[in-house]
Amino acid sequence: MRRFFALLLVMGVAWLMVLAVAEMPTYGQPNPTHNAVMERYLTRGPEETGAVNVVAGILADYRAYDTLIETTVLFAAVAAALLALGEGRHRGGAT
């Protein structure tokens, strides 16, 4: 029963997504609109950030705040896991 409802729900979600997908710009072609941000990153990125790897430039400079929080997510996960499980339960030093 649960599976049936899950299937129903999932099919609904998937159907919505397909609706959206059908309308989206064609894959692999340049987006017909709004490329200004990307253009700027590619043309002026190395000069503005000093990184030729534009992805790194975005990560650590244009969107460095996101990356800080991303690091924090990892930190949070470690903290959460340690809070739940507790570290150092293995104290046996024997090989």
């Binding site: 949070a76 809070l83 739940a84």
Partner: peptide
């Protein structure tokens, strides 16, 4: 004020919230 920034914060908060429950 940025969608992705919002998303990243959401993730921190959901992990943090779960951690408080799991504590």
């Amino acid at each position: 004020r940025d969608l992705f920034n919002l998303y990243v914060f959401i993730e921190v908060s959901s992990i943090g919230a779960c951690a408080l429950v799991a504590s």
